[in-house]
Amino acid sequence: MRRRRKLEFLAFLLPVGGAILILPPLVLIANANTSIFGFPAIVAYLFAVWLALIIATYLLQHKLGSLQDIDTEPETQPAPPDSGTLK
């Protein structure tokens, strides 16, 4: 349960963190008139964030995948009302 919550939190953090990184004001820091490896800083920054998001999603989906396999198993019994054990 604890592992699941951790993973789900990470899965939640990815899009939120990604949005924070590509939206102002953070993106304005990278919007400088310099270049990195021949790329303008802002281009390098946006593509780097993008690639990092892809890699993080790739790594996370492996872990989440095992949860999903459990979820997709057909249940035979309808779940009882939540008895509050998840607190």
Binding site: L14, G18, L53
Partner: peptide
């Protein structure tokens, strides 16, 4: 300029958050 990138970053965010929305 770079505005076109936003068209692809939005979907990227949605897909990285697939566990909560798309799934």
């Amino acid at each position: 300029g770079l505005e076109f990138l936003a068209i692809y970053l939005g979907p990227t965010l949605v897909f990285t958050g697939w566990w909560f929305g798309l799934r």
